[in-house]
Simulated scan of single mutants.
Amino acid sequence: MSMLGTYVRLSPAELERILGDPAWAREFVDELLDAEPGDARCHSTDKAWDAVRFLTRRAGFPVDVVHGEQAVPWDEDWGYGPPRYLTPDQVRTAAEVLAATEGGRLTAGVGPADLAREQVYPAMIWERGEPLDNVVLHYEALRPFFREAAEAGDAVLVWIS
Rank of each mutant, 00 (worst) to 15 (best):
S2T: 12
L4T: 14
V8Y: 01
L10A: 09
L10H: 02
G20D: 13
G20P: 03
A23P: 00
W24L: 03
A25I: 06
A25Q: 07
R26D: 06
E27W: 06
E31Y: 00
L32W: 03
L32I: 14
L32E: 13
E36K: 15
G38S: 12
R41E: 12
A48V: 04
A51F: 04
A51S: 12
R53C: 04
L55A: 00
T56Q: 01
R58E: 02
R58V: 00
G60T: 07
F61I: 05
F61K: 02
D64N: 13
D64R: 03
D64C: 07
V65C: 08
E69Y: 01
Q70W: 14
P73Y: 11
W78K: 07
G79M: 06
Y80H: 14
Y80N: 14
G81V: 07
G81C: 07
P88V: 10
V91G: 13
R92Q: 15
R92V: 14
A94P: 05
A94Q: 02
L98Q: 09
L98H: 08
R105F: 00
T107Y: 01
T107R: 12
A108Y: 04
G111Q: 04
A113F: 01
D114S: 10
L115T: 06
L115R: 03
A116C: 12
E118K: 12
Q119G: 02
V120K: 08
V120C: 10
Y121I: 10
Y121G: 06
Y121M: 12
A123D: 07
M124W: 13
I125F: 08
W126K: 05
E130D: 05
D133I: 00
V135K: 05
V136M: 02
H138C: 14
E140Y: 03
L142D: 02
P144S: 09
P144L: 09
A149H: 10
A149I: 08
E151I: 07
A152I: 08
D154A: 12
A155E: 07
W159D: 08
S161W: 07
